[in-house]
Design a binder for these strands. Structure first.
Lengths: 170, 170
DNA sequence: TACCAATCATTGGCATAGCAATTATAATCG
DNA sequence: CGATTATAATTGCTATGCCAATGATTGGTA
């Protein structure tokens, strides 16, 4: 019983892994709603909230690497749910929008993959929700302390070659 | 304005993604210790605790699909860190063991990535730690992930107690 | 004994995910 | 004005991760 703190930490590890596994497996379980995968649903959700969006913007909003988003967009486009348009002002930029079909899917699946989590969070009391929120912020602080500030997660500055204390590779 | 709760929930989503990305990217940040990825390190860690292990057992301990583990083992074997042996009693079974080289790596990377999280958690006050713990438990409850057996986590040091439902508040 | 169902590892296919390098375009500097 | 630099999206490569077969083996059963 003097190891109370250690036990709590062990529990945090366990639960963190559970949460990650759950969220991961959740969105990864191919073919969820309407033959869409989790990230695909997530993408059209983000697009429905803020479109048109440039690719890099979408990546930032999804906390994903741009190249990852390109693949997701390829699949959405081949399904006829999203469309890409070269920007007129800046020809480097590609604007992404939902098609009518894509919008229909968003409307038809209001909560999508995160629905369960969203519902659950909404069902919490104010105090419980605050606990969850604060707990996650502490975790983010810990993980971000030696790593990446959240907002810059995938900005170019962070994409450096990992030379921190690298024992000469390559 | 009911926006308060909604904003908090949105923040929870963001932070959850950040945490997952951090833990994920952490282990993925190519070639961390000795040119190994996170899952590879995790695998040899598990192997160092319970070897020889059959493939399906390893998969179970890592909460991964056997076919996923096969790929990881292929890469470990090609690096000369693990070895597969057809079982003598049951020819369907493949036993996996670490090589000397593999064992050396485990010894050389005691805490790896999770050590930093562990450090950070230990640096929290009792109240903060309790908030993190309770928040995660609420999340686990929502996600229904409680059914995922905890057992092995990242490192063996943190992996002990788990006495049934002991410290559970829930 | 010959068949049959269960088990185990593996393979192949698809999707996500990240980084490095490439291409195209824009902005800036000499 | 031309060359360099910076930015945006994409491609190529590697690695997870899941599922659905496949092949091999085992154990049980008619």
């Amino acid at each position: 019983m003097p190891t109370a703190k250690k036990d709590v930490i062990a529990g945090v590890f366990d639960n963190l892994r559970r949460v990650i596994q759950a969220v991961h497996g959740y969105s990864n379980r191919a073919q969820r709603v309407g033959g869409l995968t989790g990230p695909q649903l997530w993408a059209i959700k983000v697009l429905s909230e803020a479109a048109p969006t440039r690719v890099s913007d979408l990546a930032r909003r999804m906390y994903l690497h741009p190249s990852t988003v390109v693949g997701i967009l390829d699949r959405l486009e081949s399904k006829g749910l999203a469309a890409r348009y070269r920007s007129a002002e800046d020809h480097r930029v590609v604007d992404v929008k939902l098609t009518v079909k894509g919008k229909a899917i968003v409307d038809r699946s209001p909560a999508v993959a995160q629905g369960l989590l969203l519902q659950g969070l909404e069902g919490l009391s104010g105090r419980e929700l605050r606990v969850v929120s604060e707990g996650l912020e502490l975790l983010v602080g810990i993980l971000g302390a030696q790593r990446v500030p959240p907002q810059l997660l995938f900005s170019p500055e962070v994409n450096l070659p990992q030379t921190g204390d690298g024992p000469g590779k390559r």
